[in-house]
């Protein structure tokens, strides 16, 4: 269980002034600005629960994960992860923790990933059988088994991220923090990672917090969504409720696959075109006139076999939720 109470964390930033005359002055005197990164965070996560942490850039998601991992030592508030206080950096806690940072490189640049895995094995005292089994399973799942002995510097970004991912589960952690786990990956690997995570986290009763700008990661893996905006938690509910909010939104989207020479019919011209890619139109429709619009489409022989209805995208719901809380 993770319990966070009244957590505050501030960053100190030194601002440089502009202008040629400031060149020297900037090194002598800079403006010191205190930026509140986390404001009165209260959060409880049960054992085995998977929470998706959602927010815009600079919202405080990674800062919160860093506090939970013990990397940052907040002066106000308290964090308990199981029986541990992260800032004390107890060895037993670190043995059970994994913090995957999609943008940080842990692999030894000049050597193959297997060398880094071997160091990891020695540090976490992983037995030979488990080590082999986990590497075999995860490398096959991510289609990188043939790259384990290729120097890390010769791997693509996506391949390196996959290796980092293997590294992060190698010691069978109980608390997993995932910051952008699918960054740089192709769609097949994203799909594999999500499928793996969903099964692996549940099967091993792992408590997990996942942050991602890719909503699919959150929706497919997490069971609870926590929205954070400017350091504050503004929404905390189940993923199914978040999806329900999307389904119950006042708008729906009608997607039309147009034929060659297609001209938008008159009865659709007053609608907002949310997107247009090649021959695919996405129309935003107020649900109050949905029945009329769909009726017209069904009676239109050019379109009736080439349309489908979608709920409002989750991203838009999240942006609305964030804006409503401003």
């Amino acid at each position: 269980m993770i319990r966070i109470e009244k957590l505050n964390y501030n960053y100190t930033v030194y601002k440089h002034k502009e202008g040629k005359k400031r060149l020297l002055m900037n090194s002598l005197k800079r403006d010191r600005v205190i930026i509140p990164a986390l404001k009165n965070i209260n959060l409880e996560i049960n054992e085995g629960e998977i929470v998706g942490l959602i927010g815009l850039n600079g919202a405080g998601k990674t800062t919160l994960l860093k506090c939970i991992s013990g990397l940052l030592q907040p002066k106000e508030g308290s964090i308990h992860v199981g029986e541990y206080i992260p800032s004390e950096r107890q060895k037993e806690y670190l043995m059970k923790l994994s913090f995957f940072m999609g943008q940080k490189n842990q692999l030894i640049w000049d050597l193959p990933p297997m060398e880094t895995f071997n160091i990891h094995k020695a540090i976490y005292k992983i037995n030979d059988n488990d080590f082999k089994r986990i590497i075999d399973e995860t490398s096959q799942l991510l289609h990188v088994e043939h790259l384990l002995r290729t120097p890390s510097r010769q791997l693509s970004l996506g391949e390196r991220v996959k290796m980092e991912f293997i590294l992060s589960v190698l010691h069978s952690p109980k608390f997993v923090l995932l910051d952008e786990p699918t960054i740089g990956m192709d769609i097949q690997s994203q799909y594999s990672i999500r499928s793996f995570l969903k099964q692996y986290l549940k099967a091993n009763n792992i408590t997990c917090i996942i942050t991602s700008h890719n909503m699919e990661d959150i929706v497919k893996v997490a069971e609870r969504a926590v929205l954070i905006n400017k350091g504050e938690i503004v929404y905390d509910s189940s993923i199914s409720k978040l999806i329900y909010e999307a389904d119950c939104s006042e708008f729906m989207y009608i997607s039309i696959k147009a034929k060659e020479g297609f001209v938008l019919p008159e009865y659709l011209q007053h609608l907002t075109v949310a997107s247009k890619e090649d021959n695919r139109y996405m129309m935003k429709v107020d649900k109050s006139e949905g029945q009329a619009v769909i009726g017209n489409i069904i009676n239109d022989p050019d379109i009736r076999n080439n349309f489908f209805i979608e709920p409002e995208p989750l991203e838009e719901i999240i942006i609305k939720l964030l804006e409503n809380k401003k």
């Binding site: 860093k66 991992s69 013990g70 990397l71 950096r89 060895k91 037993e92 670190l94 043995m95 923790l97 913090f99 940072m101 940080k104 490189n105 842990q106 540090i123 976490y124």
Partner: peptide
């Protein structure tokens, strides 16, 4: 550059 984090997270 913040890469110290990688080692701070390890029990070593």
């Amino acid at each position: 550059d913040g890469s110290l984090s990688n080692w701070l997270l390890k029990p070593f």
